[in-house]
Simulated scan of single mutants.
Amino acid sequence: MSQHDLGDLDDSFAGEPPEQGPEDDDSDVYPDLPSWVEQWFCPAIALKLTDGHRGRTWCAKWWKHGPVAVRLYHVWRAWEKAVRSGDDHAMSAWWSYDCDPAVRVLSDGEVGPMHACSPTTHRDVPTLPCDPFPADDLEAVALALVTTRSHPDPDSEG
């Protein structure tokens, strides 16, 4: 394969992204998260999927899972920045440091945010429980933080 052919691989997942002119260097390739997920991310990722509770899973209704949408939003923003940089290393780093770890967490069929789903069935997955923070405890938390910082761990260096 020539270098030109390899460069075309990124565009082959779902057709070429919209053309960018020199005046659009700071604009996004995709207008929003759903467009990026549907047109680039999902076609670019291939996994052996199971029906949930084990292995890898994915929910086609990924947007109904808040933790998934939040993570994918930030993975998309990092992708946009890497693409705009024009630096081939930036895209390699994006795969290694942004995409691959996020995909591992999101698709974890045992404990991930879509663990109860299958590729064809959506099931709501509860997020972490959280009681409202009592305003009168704020002073105690602040004191604990200050105390912890003023007495460093004797086992740590420095």
Rank of each mutant, 00 (worst) to 15 (best):
P17D: 07
W95H: 13
A78C: 02
E157V: 06
H65M: 05
A144Q: 03
V29K: 03
E19H: 12
Y97K: 15
G66Q: 09
E110H: 09
G112N: 11
A142C: 10
W94L: 08
W76Q: 02
D87G: 05
W63P: 01
A78E: 03
W36K: 01
P18Y: 11
L33C: 05
S85V: 04
A69K: 08
P18A: 14
G55S: 08
Y73I: 03
A102Q: 09
A44V: 11
A93P: 00
L138K: 08
T120E: 11
G7R: 10
W63G: 00
D24R: 09
D98M: 14
H89C: 00
K61L: 11
D51A: 15
D32E: 13
P31N: 00
E16K: 08
K48P: 11
D24S: 12
Q20T: 06
D137W: 07
D100K: 15
V68H: 09
D100E: 04
V111H: 06
M1T: 06
W95V: 13
G7E: 11
R123K: 15
L128V: 03
D87R: 08
V37D: 07
A69N: 05
Q3L: 12
V75N: 08
V37G: 08
A116R: 14
K48L: 09
C117N: 05
R123C: 12
A142P: 00
A90N: 04
F13C: 06
D124C: 02
V111E: 10
V103N: 14
A14Y: 10
R149V: 07
T120G: 07
P152G: 06
D98A: 13
P67C: 05
Q3S: 12
M1C: 10
T57C: 13
W58R: 05
V141P: 00
R149N: 02
D5M: 10
Q3N: 01
P17V: 12
G7K: 10
D124V: 07
W58Y: 11
L72C: 04
P119T: 09
D155K: 06
K64T: 00
V141G: 01
Q3E: 10
T127P: 01
V111K: 10
D11N: 13
L47E: 03
S92G: 11
C99R: 05
D8W: 06
R104K: 09
L138Q: 12
G21W: 09
T50E: 01
D26P: 02
